[in-house]
Every structure is written in structure tokens, then in C-alpha cells.
């Protein structure tokens, strides 16, 4: 691989691109007025995040990020938006205390983010003895179904609840439920 001219520069460029996509996509998702553009920003951010995962030597995680976050989550959000309202809603009147609320929200998120960053930088993390696994699919699967089995199964409980909720909502079809 070292025969490639300027390989280091290309790698640095791709890394910077992934980082910018992640941050830019996230900003787009938050700041955009239209819901569809926000979802596009989320998808873009997921692509960037997938790139970062790839740089962490985890192609499996990178591809799962694309498969789940773009192929499932974003598509579901857009689908919901489409079923609800094809046209975008008219811009509502700005609420009276919108500025104040934004400032408080910004303050809280800055404080939380700063605290987490400080914690991350100043804690003496226990250094891993060696690589915890070889990162292969096999070791990942074994870990998921042995060490982290409980968390894995609990996540599926969330999905079960979602299915039950959908069943409850869709149970009566288009006719309103009988008044009882």
C-alpha cells in the first residue's frame, strides 16, 4: 500500500472529509427549517460517522451504521413525514420567549458537553491490557451473545414494545373504535 503516491495525504483528506460530513450533517439536521432537509442532514452525518468507524478499523460497524441509520431510521422518518403532511407547514409565529429558551438550551447543552469532554480528557482511563478482541465478526457475535447477552435482549424488548404500540394503534383499522 505504500507504493501509492501521496497516500498519507489522501488518507488525511478522507479522514477530514468524514469529520466534516459528520459535523456538517449534524448541524444541517439541527438548523434546517424543512424536515426533509433535516433528515438528509442526519443521513449525511451517518455517512461521515461510518467513515470515522472505518478509520477505527471497524468496517462492520461502519456498514451497519449505513444500513440501519440511512436504510432504516432515515427512511422511516421520511415515510412518517410523507404520510403526515406532504407539504411543509406554514411557518408558525415565533413564540414569545423563543430567544430565552434557545439561550437556556444552548447553555445546558454546552455545560453538559463541556463536562463530558472534561471528564473524558482528565479521567485516568484504565489502559486495556491488550486488544480486547480481534475485531472480527466471529468474536463480535460471540461477545454479543455471551457477555452482553442481557443488554442485547433488552434492546429487543424496546422493539417488541414498538410493535405492540403499532398493533394497538392499528387494531381498529380506519373505523373509529366503538365508544364504550
Amino acid at each position: 500500500m505504500n507504493t501509492f503516491p501521496g497516500a498519507a495525504w489522501i488518507l488525511a483528506g478522507v479522514f477530514a472529509l468524514s469529520g466534516m460530513l459528520t459535523v456538517g450533517g449534524a448541524l444541517l439536521a439541527v438548523t434546517s427549517q424543512r424536515v426533509i432537509r433535516s433528515v438528509s442532514g442526519l443521513a449525511l452525518g451517518s455517512v461521515g460517522l461510518a467513515g470515522l468507524y472505518y478509520f477505527l478499523h471497524s468496517p462492520f460497524l461502519a456498514l451497519m451504521e449505513i444500513l440501519i441509520y440511512i436504510g432504516a431510521v432515515c427512511v422511516t422518518i421520511v415515510f412518517a413525514v410523507m404520510l403526515a403532511e406532504p407539504d411543509e407547514p406554514p411557518p408558525e409565529k415565533p413564540r414569545p420567549r423563543a430567544r430565552l429558551e434557545t439561550a437556556v438550551a444552548l447553555l445546558v447543552s454546552l455545560a453538559a458537553g463541556g463536562a463530558l469532554a472534561w471528564l473524558g480528557l482528565h479521567t485516568r482511563w484504565p489502559v486495556a491490557r491488550a486488544r480486547t478482541g480481534d475485531g472480527s465478526l466471529r468474536s463480535l457475535g460471540v461477545e454479543l451473545l455471551s457477555t452482553y447477552c442481557l443488554a442485547f435482549e433488552l434492546i429487543s424488548l424496546v422493539l417488541l414494545l414498538a410493535i405492540l404500540g403499532a398493533l394497538v394503534l392499528a387494531r381498529h383499522g380506519r373505523t373509529p373504535p366503538p365508544a364504550s
Binding site: 427512511v75 421520511v78 465478526l137
Partner: peptide, 22 residues
């Protein structure tokens, strides 16, 4: 050649829907 080649094909295949939707 990738050790997760099939997953790559499936993952990128799922973007198709998003694009037609957009």
C-alpha cells in the same frame, strides 16, 4: 475483496430508497 463485502452490497443497496424518496 472485503471480509464484509456482502454487507457492503446490502448496506449501499438500502440507500437507493432514500434517493428515490428525496
Amino acid at each position: 475483496p472485503m471480509s464484509v463485502g456482502l454487507l457492503l452490497a446490502v448496506a449501499f443497496g438500502s440507500i437507493n430508497v432514500m434517493a428515490i424518496l428525496l
